[in-house]
């Protein structure tokens, strides 16, 4: 780790801590009634999001999932616009139309979270196709879960990307469950990175709770993509610490499993590593305080933002509404 600057390491921590605390705040705000829709939190999976996105440039793009808050924040998403979207306010990223499942920010290369498992993967391949056709050195990275690799959309997209050697990174967050069904009951293989073999590109497995390890494999995959050598499949082994959605009774967890994974909490372990690297407790506290302040501001911004105007429901369905005839 020491090959990285202290600034870089602090930035890794700052982003991971922001994600964790954003999730906990949004859960809390949902309980308090600010947020009307459901939330699939990524608590426990912060390291995959941060490690992967730190390996991307701003002009690179990502597609995300129903568990997307971490990906968006890691790619630079603004907490206050995200919180406002969760609160269904007109100042939110999608003007209150999309909610948690549909947040996007094209300026930051965030092509969108998604309500459909596997739904965003083909579009990432298409984005990579556009980059490749225009000879731009940009890369598309698609986040998806273990469960999504059982979708046809994944397999068709991976085959196409392998065939056309497109600059795309398939980033699978294997958190061992798709909703309430364990990964082992969803596929006859447990190392999902093996899936890439059928499409003739590399598949690598990484400790998904170690942001630096994730960063390193992603950087390699991104460089390979930029060189025109085609896709890589990365499987980050990780675990989600909360329910599939908030309110999930979680009857399906194996006894002792959570306790084991909690020992590998990406935030706590990385914090400790930072201290070991010589970062001071005060410096870390300062980062944490700055994040908390940002989140206070985000909640205040969301709370004080207006709800959308009714007519807003009728705009934005089409680019050209033909004087309203489309409705």
């Amino acid at each position: 780790m020491s090959k990285y600057s202290q600034d870089f390491l602090c930035e890794v921590y700052r982003r991971m801590y922001l994600i964790r605390e954003f999730e906990l705040r949004s859960i809390e705000e949902r309980r308090r009634g600010l947020i009307p829709g459901f939330i699939h939190s990524c608590v426990g999976q912060e390291a995959t999001a941060v490690g992967a996105c730190l390996a991307l440039n701003q002009e690179d793009v990502i597609t995300s999932t129903h568990r997307g808050h971490g990906h968006l924040l890691a790619k630079g998403g603004e907490p206050k616009f995200m919180m406002a979207e969760l609160a269904a306010r007109s100042s939110g990223y999608c003007r209150g139309r999309g909610g948690s499942l549909h947040i996007a920010d094209f300026d930051l290369g965030i092509l969108g979270a998604n309500g459909i498992v596997g739904g965003g993967i083909p579009a990432a391949v298409g984005a990579a196709l556009a980059f490749s056709m225009r000879k731009e050195k940009r890369v598309a990275l698609s986040f998806f879960g273990d469960g999504a690799t059982n979708q046809g959309s994944f397999h068709e997209a991976a085959n196409l990307a392998g065939l056309w050697k497109l600059p795309v990174v398939f980033f699978c967050e294997n958190n061992l469950y798709g909703e309430g069904t364990p990964q082992s009951k969803q596929a006859p293989i447990c190392d999902l990175a093996n899936r890439s073999a059928s499409y003739c590109f590399p598949g690598v497995i990484v400790d998904g709770n170690d942001p630096i390890a994730v960063y390193e494999v992603t950087r390699e995959a991104v460089e390979r993509a930029r060189r025109g050598e085609g896709p890589t499949f990365i499987e980050g082994k990780t675990y989600r610490f909360r329910g599939h959605y908030e309110g999930d009774p979680q009857v399906y967890r194996l006894p002792g499993e959570m306790e084991e994974w909690l020992k590998k909490d990406p935030i706590l372990t990385f914090r400790k590593r930072l201290l070991d690297e010589g970062e001071t407790e005060e410096a870390i506290r300062e980062i944490e305080q700055q994040v908390q302040q940002k989140l206070d501001e985000a909640v205040a911004f969301a709370t004080s933002s207006p709800v959308p105007q009714l007519e807003d429901a009728l705009s934005g369905v089409y680019a050209d509404t033909h004087d309203g005839k489309v409705f």
Binding site: G37, R97, P308, V317
Partner: peptide, 16 residues
Amino acid sequence: AKNVPLPYSPVLENYV
């Protein structure tokens, strides 16, 4: 329902 996708916002959803 009106001919627009279902919005997330409760206000808009009720309207649609």
